[in-house]
Each structure stands twice: as C-alpha cells, then as structure tokens.
C-alpha cells in the first residue's frame, strides 16, 4: 500500500475539507475492516485516508431525545457492551455483531458497513427496518438522510465529494416494540451473508402488530425495504397465515444474482424463511418489552 497519505483530524469540518481536497481517491477511515482489505487487494487505488476516530462525535453511543446516536467510528464491540441500546434495539446490535470475528468487532463500525455499500452488509437491513437516519457532514455543512438512501448500488453511495457519515440515529422506541436480524451463512461465523433479513415491529396492548418494517439484504443491488412484507404483519398477531404472507411478500421482492455464495433460487427461498423467523423473534421481543 504505497502512496497512501494519512491524517487524523479532530473536527468533522476538517475531515470534510480534507476529503474534498483529497479527490476521488480520498476515503474516510472508521473501522477500516473493509477499507484496508480493499486497498491491499488493489480494488481501491491508494490515496488520502482520513481517520475519523479522533473526532469526538464520531466515537461512542449517546442517548438523545429518546433515541440513540451512534458515532460513525464506534466499533461493534462497543454496541454489544451498551446495555440500554441492547434492550431497545437488540436486532440492530445483533446485526452489527454478526459482522466478522471478535477481532473485526473490535474495529468494524455500522457507518463503515453502511458506506461500503455492499448489498450483503449485515447491519444495514436491521438499520433500515429500524428507520434509522444518519447525519452526513460535507463541505456544505450537515444534512440528515435515511440510512436506506446511502447505498445506491454495490460499492456506490449517494454521498457527494467531501461528504461522510458522522453519526447514525436510532429513533425513540415506543413500548411493545421489538426487532431482530437473521442471516444465512454456510459456516457459523466469518462469512458474508448469503441472505439477511431484519424485522422491526410494534404491538398494541392486545398483541396486534401496529407497525412493521421488513428489510432484506443480499437479494438485490441494495438493501430492500419490503413494504408488502411489513404490511403482511400489520393487524395480525404474527400468526401462521401472516407469516406465510410475509414469506411470500419477501420472496416476491427479491431480485438477487447467482454468484459464488448462492443462487437466485436459493436466495429467494431463504429470504422468505429468514423474514418469517426474524418476525417471530421480533414479535416475541416486542411482547416482553412493555
């Protein structure tokens, strides 16, 4: 990795200015678990690396306005150690914690997972289902955007030159809400998701689903928020019929490719299976969370 330049600014605006000045080959570094691999393999040309970890807002988890703010460079391991976050958003935390090994968890961030723009990113379906937003800093200042709007294709983002994600915001959580994320991998650890499914739902006092969001990973060029799948749950108690409708809606939304990790046919079937199973877990969590 020759011809790499490195800076570690302490203010978001400095980072944005540096990224803009660094041109097309400038990259923000949060966890680095994708970036360093891509640089080493030659998939990314060397350029300026802007480390975000010395920017105070980019590190740590804060409770604000009833929701959570997660700094862009916060490693997965920190998410699993945060008790309140785990109680409110167990699906988001388990999705982030599925990325790579314990070692990778010591570094990898959800913002990095998001901006790497892999269709198979584990944390993204959970974040999309959670209706998370992110704060983007750029040369023109700050803006907020839904998490689902960041990736626009494999490896491509909607971020303008000089822009980077500084924070991820999880909204306030109503009572009787639950979320869950499941993925299918050939081994038990260390693999890229063949399919991922995140479900986030809220119940009323009778256990009827009032709100539901279902997002699928690795079945399309970007993570899919499947409105029909969410709709299949609303007004039900996630019973067999609702789950069957959810399964069908999830499969209908799939537009995957066949590659070394899975076939179109398999990915489509598994999307339905995992959406159903994740919904059952999320429902169970929502029931327990008064």
């Amino acid at each position: 990795m020759s011809h790499v330049e490195f800076i570690a600014p302490t203010k978001p605006e400095q980072a944005a200015a540096a990224l803009l000045a660094g041109g097309a080959h400038a990259r923000p570094l949060s966890g680095g678990t994708d970036l360093l691999v891509q640089l080493r393999s030659g998939r990314l040309p060397p350029g300026l690396i802007v480390d975000l970890k010395r920017i105070p807002e980019a590190i740590g988890i804060r409770q604000e306005g009833g929701g959570f703010v997660i700094g862009a460079a916060t490693p997965g391991a920190a998410l699993s150690e945060h008790r309140a976050l785990g109680l409110a958003w167990p699906g988001v935390v388990e999705a982030a914690n599925l990325i790579g090994s314990t070692q990778v968890q010591g570094r990898a961030s959800m913002a990095g997972n998001l901006c790497n723009a892999s269709p198979a990113a584990d944390s993204v379906p959970a974040l999309v289902a959670a209706r998370a937003t992110c704060v983007i800093v750029g040369p023109g200042g700050r803006r907020t955007a839904p998490v689902g709007s960041i990736a626009i294709g494999p490896g491509r983002t909607s971020l303008a030159p000089g822009e980077f994600v500084l924070e991820i915001h999880l909204p306030p959580r109503p009572a009787r809400s639950g979320d869950a994320y499941l993925r299918l991998i050939p081994r038990t650890e260390m693999d890229i998701a063949v399919v991922g499914a995140g479900v986030n739902l809220t119940l009323d006092g009778d256990g009827v689903v009032t709100e539901a969001h279902v997002a699928l990973g690795a079945v399309a060029p970007t993570v899919l928020l499947v409105a029909d799948a969410g709709a299949a749950l609303i007004g039900t108690k996630a019973d067999e019929a609702a789950l069957a409708a959810l399964d069908a809606a999830a499969r209908a939304a799939c537009n995957p490719i066949s590659d070394k990790r899975g076939t179109i046919e398999y990915r489509t079937k598994i999307a339905g299976v995992l959406a159903r199973r994740a919904a059952t877990i999320a429902y169970g969590r929502a029931e327990k969370r008064a």
């Binding site: 038990t188 650890e189 260390m190 693999d191 890229i192």
Partner: peptide
C-alpha cells in the same frame, strides 16, 4: 479465507 471456508471453532 473469507470465501474459501475452512472450519472455524464454532463449526
């Protein structure tokens, strides 16, 4: 070793 999948401890 990401996609040439040798068994890991949890397998």
């Amino acid at each position: 070793f990401l996609d040439y999948r040798v068994p890991v401890a949890s397998d």
